[in-house]
Design a protein around this nucleic acid. Structure first.
Lengths: 340, 340
DNA sequence: CACACGGATGATAACGTTTTCATGGGAGGC
DNA sequence: GCCTCCCATGAAAACGTTATCATCCGTGTG
C-alpha cells in the first residue's frame, strides 16, 4: 500500500534528479518545444521514479484559463436531472473540460449563497444551473455577475442565457391530445413549480383554457411517486376523472399503481399520461404514454452555450428542444365515448 | 448581458482601488486576521465595484491541499451509480469538498488512460472509482500511484482500498430465499460482470452449489432492460423456469413485462427477484421483491475513506454494507409446492 | 517617564508551473 | 576558415494568492 509523503514531488525535484533545468522538464511535459532524445529519456525516467504528476493548480494559474464547468442542481438522481448532467459531462469531456457537481439542498438564501460560494471557491470557467425547481430558480437569481452562467430550464427566462426544453408546449401537446380523444377535461398531478407562468403546469392550464374546458384544482405531489400513489387512491373513487396528466413519469407510475390496486382499468376507464420518457415507463403494464424530452441534448446545448460565453463568442443558435408525444397503452378515449 | 473582459480583476486591482496593500485585501477575504472597520469597508466596496472573485487556482497553489474529489464511473444515470454519486457529493459538500465527475466510456486501455489523464490534469485531492463494471476495473488497474484512490465495489479487491457493498452475500441471500421457498433451482439474468469470483453472479452460483442445485447457464443482458425483456419472452415458454434472480431491478422490470405479455402469472407460476431496491420496483404490479443496497451510504463511506487517505490518517472502520432482502409481491413458492 | 506589549499594516517570500528572453554551440554556406 | 543562422538549453520573470516577518503606532504598566 503506497504511503503519501508529506511533500509531493515537484518539477524541481524531477529536474534535479534528471540533471536538467526546470524548463526542460516542462518542455518534455508539454511537448511544446523539442528536447534532445537523451535528455527527454532522463526526464521521463525521473518522472517515473518519483511518481511525479504536474500540479494542476500551478498550471491553471499560469494558463489563465480554467477548464472546469460547475453544475449546480437541486438533485442529481432524478431522471431528467441525471440525463441532463450526462449530456453536459459527455460534451465537456469531449472538449477537454471537466464537470464539477454541486447539489443545492434548499432554496433559502443562506443555503444557496453558501453552496454557490463553495462551488465558486474553485477555479471555474463557467457555470450551468439546472433550473428545474425552486432551488434552481433561487440559484440563478443569486449567481454573482462576472461568471459565465447558463440556465437549463423548462422554459425561457431572463437574467442569464437560458437553454430550454419547451415544457409549456409539451404539456399543451399532451393535454390537447387527451382533449381530442374526447375527455371533457384533464386532471393534473404536478411536480414542484419552476415558474408560475411557464412550465408543465402552465402548459396544461393554457391548453384547458384555450379549449374552454373546466380547470380542475392542481394536485401537487412534489417529487415523490408515493405521494402520487396516495393521490391516486382518492382519485380512483371519483367518476369524473377520466384523464390525468402527471408532472413526470415517476408520478405517473405511482398513480398507475394506485389505480391498479383499486381495480380501475387503464386506459379504458382512466387515461394516464406521464412526462419525460423514462425508459421504465415503456415496460409498465400498461405501457406509459409520455412526453419524451431530450435531456441529454439540452445538456450538450448548455455546455456549448457556456463555452461560447467563456470565449466571448457568438452563442450557437439556441433552438429549444422539440419534445414529442409517445403514445403507448395508458391513454385512450374516455368511457362515455366508447359507449356510444 | 454582462461582458467578460479580457483580464479579470485580480487582488492587486482591488488593493489599488481601495488604497490598501494586497495582503490586507487577502485578510479581508479570508478573515484570518482582523482588519480595521474602515479599511474593510473600502476593500469590500472595491470588490463589489470590480466584481472581483478570488482566483481559485492561485489559492489552491499556495494552500497546497486541494479540495476536489474526482469520481470516475462507467455511467452516472443508472440507479446504483447515481445514488452512490449522490452519497459522495453529499458527504463531500458537508466537508467543504467539491466533486468532479468523469465518465469512463470504454474499458480499452487507451480510453481509460486518456480519461484518467483528463481528470488528473486538474488539481485533485483524491479519487473515487466506481468499480461496478469492466470499465471501472480497468480504471482502478490503470490508476497511477501517488494519488489517493478508493474503489467502490460490489466485493473486496486488491491494489487500492475498497469500500464495498457485499454483492456476493446479497445474491446468496436472495438465492437461498428462493430455494427455501421450494424452487428446484434459480435462473439468473446478469448485469455485466465486475469480477469472476465475486459479485452478484458469483453469489448466485455459490448458493446453488452449496444447496446442490442445478446451475443453469447464466444469461447476460448487459444493462439494457429491453434485453431482459427479450430474454423474458423466451423464458416464458419454458416450464422448468420457476424462479429468476435478476442482476438489477431494471432488468427485473423488463422480465416482468415479458412474462405479463405472455400471460405468465407472477409469482404463482414464476418468481422474480431484483437487485438494488429501485423505488419504482415497489410500485410495480406485482411489486418487486428485491435486495436493497444502501448506495448512498457506500458513497459516504468512500468519501470518508479517501479523506482519511489524503490526511494519512487511520481509515475509518470499513464495515461493508448490509444488504437486506425486501420481500414484496413478485416472489413465492413454485407451482408444484402449491399443488401439494 | 521609560518600557514592554499587542494589534494593525505593509513589504517580501513562497507556492509550482509555463513563458519569455538570452546564451551557447554546432551546422552549413561562402 | 569565418560568418551566419538555427536549435537546444538555462536563467529569470510571471501568474494571483497567502504566509511570514518586520515595522509602526498606541496603550497600559512599573
Amino acid at each position: 500500500m503506497p504511503r503519501f509523503v508529506s511533500r509531493t514531488p515537484a518539477i524541481t525535484d524531477v529536474a534535479k534528479l534528471a540533471g536538467v533545468s526546470v524548463p526542460t522538464v516542462s518542455r518534455v511535459l508539454t511537448g511544446s518545444v523539442p528536447v534532445s532524445t537523451e535528455r527527454r529519456e532522463r526526464v521521463l525516467r525521473a518522472i517515473q521514479e518519483l511518481g511525479y504528476r504536474p500540479n494542476g493548480a500551478a498550471r491553471a494559474l499560469i494558463k489563465g484559463h480554467q477548464s472546469v464547468i460547475a453544475v449546480l442542481a437541486g438533485a442529481t438522481t432524478r431522471y431528467g436531472y441525471a440525463l441532463t448532467i450526462q449530456g453536459i459531462e459527455e460534451a465537456a469531456r469531449l472538449a477537454g473540460y471537466i464537470v464539477m457537481i454541486t447539489v443545492i439542498e434548499a432554496e433559502d438564501p443562506d443555503t444557496v449563497t453558501k453552496t454557490i460560494d463553495l462551488a465558486l471557491a474553485n477555479p471555474v470557467a463557467g457555470v450551468i444551473v439546472l433550473k428545474f425547481d425552486p432551488a434552481g430558480i433561487a440559484t440563478v437569481r443569486a449567481m454573482p455577475s462576472g461568471v459565465p452562467v447558463v440556465a437549463v430550464a423548462g422554459s425561457r427566462g431572463s437574467g442569464v442565457p437560458h437553454v430550454v426544453l419547451d415544457d409549456t408546449t409539451a404539456a399543451m401537446t399532451a393535454t390537447d391530445y387527451l382533449l381530442q380523444l374526447g375527455h371533457r377535461t384533464v386532471h393534473h398531478i404536478a411536480v414542484p413549480l419552476a415558474g408560475r407562468r411557464s412550465g408543465r403546469s402552465a402548459g396544461w392550464r393554457k391548453a384547458l383554457e384555450r379549449a374552454g374546458a373546466e380547470i380542475p384544482p392542481l394536485m401537487e405531489a412534489g417529487w415523490d411517486p408515493h405521494r402520487a400513489y396516495e393521490i391516486g387512491l382518492t382519485l380512483a373513487d371519483r367518476d369524473d376523472v377520466t384523464a390525468v396528466l402527471c408532472g413526470n413519469d415517476e408520478l405517473a407510475i405511482g398513480l398507475l399503481r394506485a389505480l391498479h390496486e383499486k381495480g380501475r382499468r387503464v386506459p379504458d376507464e382512466i387515461s394516464v399520461v406521464g412526462f419525460d420518457g423514462h425508459p421504465l415507463g415503456a415496460l409498465w403494464s400498461p405501457a406509459l404514454t409520455t412526453v419524451q424530452q431530450d435531456f441529454v441534448d439540452v445538456g450538450r446545448r448548455a455546455f456549448r452555450e457556456v463555452v461560447a460565453m467563456i470565449g466571448n463568442e457568438q452563442p450557437p443558435q439556441n433552438s429549444s428542444g422539440t419534445p414529442h408525444l409517445v403514445i403507448r397503452e395508458s391513454s385512450g378515449p374516455p368511457p362515455e365515448a366508447k359507449r356510444r
